[in-house]
């Protein structure tokens, strides 16, 4: 590579560094990560408050079948899964700036925990949904059998 060409590249790099210094990029990404993680945390907290209120309401209306509690847990699980998606998005954003090895290790551990939890939550939600659907079908069959006596 010619010396003049190299100097040209170096000038471009300098200009880029002036326009978008790494510290500014780091600040911007940090702000975005905080916003996204706060949104995820808010969703999880709102889900917990909602589920708590529903549990109290169900209790106040009189003890219902377990199915009602399962339905509330299913919705809480959905809130948790949504919050997790936001927090994973925050993790991905964090990798945008060059972190230290300790930060990379922590990030990997957190991302692994969140991904595993998201996977298990998804499986639990699917299982609960199948159980609710089975109960509903059983109830429908039972009421049909009562309505049409042989």
């Amino acid at each position: 590579m010619e010396w003049a060409e190299l100097r040209g590249y170096s000038r471009i790099m300098d200009t880029t560094a002036e326009v978008l210094p790494e510290s500014a990029l780091r600040d911007a990404v940090d702000l975005l990560v905080r916003l996204v993680e706060a949104a995820g945390a808010l969703i999880i907290f709102v889900g917990a408050v909602w589920a708590f209120g529903r549990f109290l309401l169900t209790m106040a209306r009189g003890a219902g079948p377990d199915r009602r509690f399962n339905r509330i847990r299913l919705t809480l699980g959905r809130f948790l899964a949504l919050g997790l998606e936001f927090q994973l998005a925050g993790d991905v954003l964090r990798t945008a700036v060059a972190p230290s090895f300790t930060e990379i290790g922590q990030l990997a551990a957190i991302a692994a925990i969140r991904t595993a939890l998201n996977f298990f939550l998804g499986r639990e939600i699917a299982a609960e949904r199948a159980e609710i659907e089975r109960d509903r079908r059983k109830d429908a069959d039972g009421s049909r059998a009562r309505a049409e006596p042989v």
Partner: peptide, 29 residues
Amino acid sequence: VVLAAAGRLLPAVAVLLDFLTAAGLLRLA
């Protein structure tokens, strides 16, 4: 509340563990 309403341990523990998971996730943020 669930233990009092349902009278069984399994649903109550499941609910408690769900909330504890939510708390753990909040601490991870």
